[in-house]
Write a protein that binds this DNA or RNA. Structure first.
Lengths: 213, 213
DNA sequence: CGATAATTTGACCGCTTGGTAAAACATTAC
DNA sequence: GTAATGTTTTACCAAGCGGTCAAATTATCG
């Protein structure tokens, strides 16, 4: 019998665990570089070092791989926002949110690009997640920010657009990496641009949101 | 004889002009929604209301259409940055740059997404343009901003990351439109989000860059 | 060991893809 | 008009695509 993915025994075998991980790792490479339609199963299989039918033994369709990745990314991607703490000091909360998002752009650019590809092409696979869980989380944090503004801890501003602007500025360094590198020139060999970006963005957001008389 | 695109007569016929325009218009739709690899010639042909071979009579390959569009977008996309004026008042120059970029995100979202798709996937077709003309223009304007900062007209800041942050925040409303809509909810039916974004971003950048003692 | 289940392979299929060939058709120039 | 050129269509192809199948191979367990 050859029913994939632990049919009889509920427990996944060691091989399953290993191979599925290898596939997802390879697929992250390929999907983030080519988008869903641009990626081929052959590419992913080759990157994972196995034959196409072998890969399809673990994930029945291309969509299944993609969905797995998207779900995973969607979850970890929102971690920093979840950590946003109403009780904390607004200035340091915003500062560390920016830092964390920038670190993610630096350390997980493929995940960022996978997500960007998906949203850019109309989010065909995750519309519900955006309108549901994502919206709810943002609504909740927007209320926190609004409360800070009301109590005069930060300048009055639209909390939604504040969040959008933090998302966009930080993810820019992952999604538009090629452009950033091209503009900065190759003298910027290392990852120094992330430190510079952090300094700039913290200054911009902290000073831009400082409560005014 | 059937050599496309004005071989003998250098002058393009009326039909050529019309059809090429129709093709580019349709291709912009399709490419911006699906990326290069995700788009098919059949899709473009149908959107342009003609048969595939007919379309291929005007553009010999899928790449040729794409290149044509990219070149066009690359040029118009930089208009606002070119307009950036060293002699002007820093505050109003930055303000109007943001406004202009936001208007482009609102009025030409397809162009923005076409560009985003390209850069996101490693800019395989336009690396040279990014490292050449784009970098030169940005270098030039960065010098302007740096001069403003030196003379105390605005806060000291990294001009490159300032430009990146304006690009990213404004284009976000075109490229991540689905997400923005999802988060804001459908009560935001109209284009009001662009006005809100403009207000927020102007506040953020103007206050964030205000010269400090 | 042997039996059973899990994994891997190679051959294959139907469909879509980018692109071509050649002839039919339309337009323009004289 | 008619000849030359420009445009459109029909039929087609080879390659690439996502995915299947059955058989071969390997791992697991008593």
């Amino acid at each position: 019998m050859a029913i994939p993915r632990a049919a009889k025994t509920q427990r996944r075998t060691r091989i399953q665990e290993e191979k599925e991980e290898r596939i997802l790792e390879a697929a992250l490479d390929v999907f983030s570089q080519n988008g869903f339609r641009g990626a081929t199963i052959d590419q992913i299989a080759e990157a994972a070092g196995m034959s196409k039918p072998n890969l399809l033994y673990y994930f029945r369709t291309k969509e299944a791989i993609h969905r797995h990745l998207i779900d995973r990314v969607l979850f970890t991607w929102l971690e920093p926002l979840r950590a946003f703490n109403a009780e904390g000091n607004p200035e340091s909360e915003i500062r560390s949110y920016i830092r964390r998002k920038l670190e993610m752009a630096r350390d997980f650019p493929r995940e960022s690009r996978l997500f960007a590809n998906e949203v850019l092409q109309g989010a065909p696979h995750i519309e519900d997640e955006l309108k549901g869980p994502l919206k709810e989380l943002v609504d909740e944090k927007a209320e926190v920010i609004r409360a800070w503004a009301r109590s005069g801890k930060i300048a009055k501003c639209d909390p939604y657009h504040l969040i959008f602007s933090i998302w966009s500025t930080t993810q820019h360094y992952a999604d538009f990496d090629v452009q950033v590198r091209a503009v900065l020139g190759q003298d910027y060999a290392g990852e120094g641009r992330f430190e510079d970006a952090a300094r700039f963005l913290e200054q911009l957001f902290i000073d831009g949101l400082r409560a005014r008389a």
